[in-house]
Structures are given as structure tokens and as C-alpha cells.
Design a protein around this nucleic acid. Structure first.
Lengths: 156, 156
DNA sequence: ATAATTGGGTTGACCCGTCAATCTATTTAT
DNA sequence: ATAAATAGATTGACGGGTCAACCCAATTAT
């Protein structure tokens, strides 16, 4: 296995993907242990916890989470009695979302763990390193944002 | 939507996930347009292209790709006659993998596009920025590496 | 008033990623 | 020689993410 065997191997995107998947794994593990929730479930729970009474669409917008996935995972939370859904009396299309009592308890109990996890992550990085890192992410993201709305051509 | 609405929202991991998914989307789009391949298919094709005759296990090790996914996606490449599989005469468990002629053509034609994509990405970043970025990724990854083999407890 | 359009949500389909169970071929220990 | 352990690979199951089609309620245009 020489150095240049697989070109894909050293690619920046590839590295990103790996780190990301490990971060996911860590969060998933933590969430399952502490709250019995999946990552997506937690994300929705925390969105509702932080924005009680907000409608589904707005939450998906805030989180840039997919409508579909949101709908499906929300259902599991409702089935588990962690979230209460009510139809907006004015506009019957709109779902108003709130945590149930047990949902609130779970949220309050879990949030500190997740905050700590983030803090630990930040603590890893030296001063300025986080800024630089986020800056690069921003730069990439903005470029992609433009790029993705254009035809798939990166060739010369 | 105040500042502190959804705590999850500003988390570093979250930002990473978003960038990563956009990078994936871009690569997928490019690959579908240029080669009619999915991302995983391309990864395997390029692994084989760069390491002809190598057995499957080694390629999964190199790429840290999952055995399972590798096996499944490999099958699609074989079905499409892009990859040729032969059983090692010495050890009948081992699969020797090579590109077919058409696979080689596709590989040779697609690789430059993917390299250019990487180059474009790198070009985005200022001097040193890439190093710093990868450095942070490394730091995070190594920490996670240790963490993931330990019990799920981030609490104090 | 009615048709067309838009907005909110749901469902289906597909891809990626990980883990666990299984099957078979080989190797090792007895 | 045979049993147990191990290695290569396949398959199943689940979670996550994205896209597209669809359904229903509300709005807008005619």
C-alpha cells in the first residue's frame, strides 16, 4: 500500500466525513445511554423544548432538517408521549408542538449532558482555533451553496 | 426566534454535519452527471482503480469503509460490469478485484473531475488554512477515537 | 362560487453508514 | 484427524439524510 494508492483517501471531504460520523456515533451513544433517544429524536425534542408552541415547518426551517424526516421522527416522540401535538384552531394545517411533562423532564435532564459535550469539544481547541475552523466551514458552505444551484460541471 | 431558541442550533457538530452533507450532495451530483455512479460506488471504483488486484478486506481497511456496505456496493459495480472479481486460487475466501475495461475507462475519465473538485476546494482556503483545518479535524478525531471505546459518560 | 395555486405535513423511495449475525474457507490446537 | 478458532465476505436490521410525489386545508384569481 504505497502513498498514492487511493486518491480518494486523503481528500478533505473524506476526512470531514469520517470526523462527522464519529461525532454522530459519540452523540448517539451518549443520547441512548442518558435519554434513550436517537440523535434525530433529540434534535427535535430540543427544538421543541427551546421553541414551545412553534409549528413544525418553522422548526424544520430553523434546523434545516428535512420535512420528511422531521415528520417521521416527530411521530415516534408523540408515540412515546414526549411531545404533544395540537392543531392550530385558526389554520387547520398547522401543528403546534409542545413537550409533555415527561418530555420536559427528559429535555431538562439531557440538555446539560449535551451542552457539556459541546463544551468539551470546544475545550479541545486552542483559542482562535475554533473561530478559524468555523470560518473555513463557512467559506466552504457558502461556496457550495452557490455551486449546488448550478449545473453539475466542475470540468474545464 | 431569539438567540437561544434551539441550543442545538449553533453547535459545532451541527455545522460540521451541514457542511458535510452539502459536500456529499455536490459530489453525488457531479458523479451522477459525469459517471452515473453513486458516491460509494465511486469510492470503491477508485479504490480498486488505485489498487488493482487487491482483496476486498484490504480496501475496506484502507478506506475505513464498512465491510457490509463495501460488499453491497461492490455487487452493483460487478453487475454493471465495471469491476471483475476473481477468487484467489490459493485462498478461496479472498476476492481479487480489478476494473474491467469499461471500468478503467470510466475511472480514468472521472478521476480528473474529482481531483479538480478537491483542488477547487483547496483553492478556496488561504495558505495555512487547510493545515489548520485538518489539524482541528485530527484533534477531534483522535479524541473521539479514545472516547468511543469508553463507556458513554460525559457527565460530571 | 369555483378553479388554480400555495402552504403544511405525510409517505415512499433511495443512498450512506454502522452493527451484529451468519456462512464458508482456512488455520491452529489437541 | 478432528474440533475450535479465526478470517473473508454476505446479509439483515436499523438510524440518518435527501428528494419527489402526494394529500389536505387555505388562499387567491377569475
Amino acid at each position: 500500500m504505497s502513498e498514492e494508492t487511493a486518491p480518494v483517501h486523503r481528500f478533505l471531504t473524506y476526512r470531514l466525513a469520517r470526523v462527522q460520523s464519529k461525532l454522530n456515533a459519540q452523540a448517539s451513544k451518549l443520547l441512548r445511554a442518558k435519554a434513550g433517544l436517537s440523535l434525530a429524536q433529540w434534535r427535535i425534542l430540543s427544538l421543541i423544548g427551546g421553541n414551545p408552541g412553534t409549528r413544525a415547518t418553522d422548526l424544520t426551517r430553523i434546523s434545516t432538517m428535512d420535512k420528511g424526516q422531521f415528520s417521521r421522527k416527530l411521530k415516534t416522540l408523540v408515540d412515546d408521549r414526549l411531545v404533544v401535538v395540537s392543531v392550530d384552531p385558526q389554520d387547520h394545517r398547522i401543528l403546534r408542538l409542545r413537550l409533555s411533562d415527561s418530555g420536559q423532564v427528559l429535555y431538562d435532564r439531557t440538555l446539560p449532558h449535551m451542552r457539556k459535550r459541546q463544551a468539551d469539544l470546544k475545550a479541545l481547541l486552542g483559542p482562535g482555533e475554533e473561530e478559524a475552523f468555523l470560518g473555513v466551514l463557512d467559506k466552504i458552505e457558502q461556496t457550495l451553496e452557490r455551486d449546488l444551484s448550478r449545473p453539475a460541471d466542475a470540468s474545464g
